[in-house]
Simulated scan of single mutants.
Amino acid sequence: MTGASAPKETDAEQVETANTAFYEALERGDFDAVSGLWLEDGEYHEDAEISCVHPGWPVLTGRGEVLRSYALIMANTEYIQFFLTDVHIGVAGDTALVTCTENILSGGPAPEAGEELGPLVGQLVVATNVFRRTSEGWKLWSHHASPVLAESDDSESDETPS
């Protein structure tokens, strides 16, 4: 086939690519890549600061606070891997919403110098990522992540059905 071009990615595919790039940059600990995936404050609208909620953290607003939080997380996380499931993408004009479950495997620094990686911990988190279309592609406007509480066996009722 000569002269044929590859089909153009749909908006949803472009958003999925941007969302995947965000998690891959976190896994690599690539602060510059993470920074480049976020909107500049006021880029979409003069009053539109970026925002982020990490599990158990207060709301962070503004590029400085949000990026500082990622620098802190990366500095204190030796290993992290995300397995995304239940990914749903919706696009409305220049705004996109991604919801997903982050199945996270992470480990901190070794307990003592010279030892191997600290213990690995698994965590289940649901996340909402809001993207805006820019001249440079889709950029994160907001990230909100919340832990999924595991159900315990105690949650079942002890009552006998009548």
Rank of each mutant, 00 (worst) to 15 (best):
R68K: 15
D32H: 10
R68E: 14
T61P: 06
D30E: 02
R28I: 08
H54Y: 15
E24H: 06
E136A: 15
G137S: 01
F22T: 12
Y23V: 08
S157H: 03
G62C: 07
T128K: 10
D30H: 07
S106W: 11
R28E: 11
V59R: 13
E24N: 05
R68H: 03
L149R: 13
L37Y: 01
G36F: 01
G114Q: 02
D86P: 06
L26P: 02
C100Q: 15
T95M: 07
N103C: 07
F131P: 08
E115Y: 03
D30C: 11
K139Q: 00
G107K: 05
N76W: 02
N19M: 08
A71I: 06
G118H: 06
G36K: 04
W57L: 13
D86Y: 11
R28V: 03
T61V: 15
T17S: 14
E102Q: 15
G93S: 01
H88N: 14
P109K: 14
L149W: 10
F31R: 12
L67R: 01
K139F: 00
E27N: 13
L72P: 00
L84A: 11
H143E: 05
G3Y: 09
E27I: 06
G122R: 13
D11Y: 10
E49Y: 08
P119G: 06
P111T: 12
A6V: 07
L117D: 06
L140W: 07
Q81L: 13
A48S: 12
I104D: 11
S146I: 09
S135C: 04
R63H: 02
T10N: 12
Q14K: 14
G137W: 01
D94I: 02
Q81H: 14
E112T: 14
P111C: 11
V59G: 07
A75H: 05
P58C: 07
G118A: 12
I80N: 11
G114H: 06
Y70R: 07
A33E: 00
N129E: 09
L72W: 07
S35M: 04
S135K: 15
D41S: 03
S162E: 14
D94Q: 00
G64F: 10
G90A: 08
E40T: 10
G29S: 04
L140F: 05
E65G: 03
A33H: 02
L26E: 09
L124E: 07
E112V: 13
V130E: 02
E115M: 01
A6E: 02
N103Y: 09
T134H: 03
S155P: 00
R132W: 07
D41L: 04
S69Y: 03
Y79A: 12
F22A: 07
D41T: 00
E115R: 04
L60R: 03
T85A: 03
T99S: 13
E40S: 08
D47L: 04
G137V: 00
E24P: 00
Q123T: 15
I89V: 15
P147E: 12
E151Q: 10
S162M: 09
F22H: 13
L120R: 04
A110R: 01
P111Q: 10
N76R: 07
E40L: 09
L60G: 01
E136W: 00
P7S: 02
E151R: 13
E16Q: 09
L120Q: 11
T95H: 06
G3M: 12
F82S: 10
G90E: 08
T17P: 00
D153A: 05
F83P: 01
A48F: 05
K139I: 01
V34R: 00
V66G: 04
L84I: 15
V91L: 10
E16G: 14
E43T: 01
G107L: 11
